[in-house]
Amino acid sequence: MFRSMRDAKAGARLSFTFDGRPLTGREGDTVTASLLANGVTACRETPVSGVPRAPYCLMGVCFDCLIVIDGIGNRQGCLVPLREGMRIETQHGRRQPEEMRG
């Protein structure tokens, strides 16, 4: 959905997974920006109707970028910096018990 600008400064690359898929991102980016840069469109399905949603505002306001990060569900991906080895997963609807252990 997004791509890097051609002459952007290269940063250190961090490895992470999204739904088990190994990906890399730029150190300094947020989780949401890293997903966008990797062409990910939807990050969650809503708890009300189950339709897919994608990040909308990127500034912490809309809560549409909610995602599971390292086993903890419903985190605002646009406010969390990417870290090496992060396990990122689609937020499927309501918060699940396995997303609560942390």
Partner: peptide, 11 residues
């Protein structure tokens, strides 16, 4: 006073 959490699976 009442607290309400986000939606979670029925338990």
């Amino acid at each position: 006073q009442i607290i309400v959490t986000e939606k979670t699976t029925p338990f």
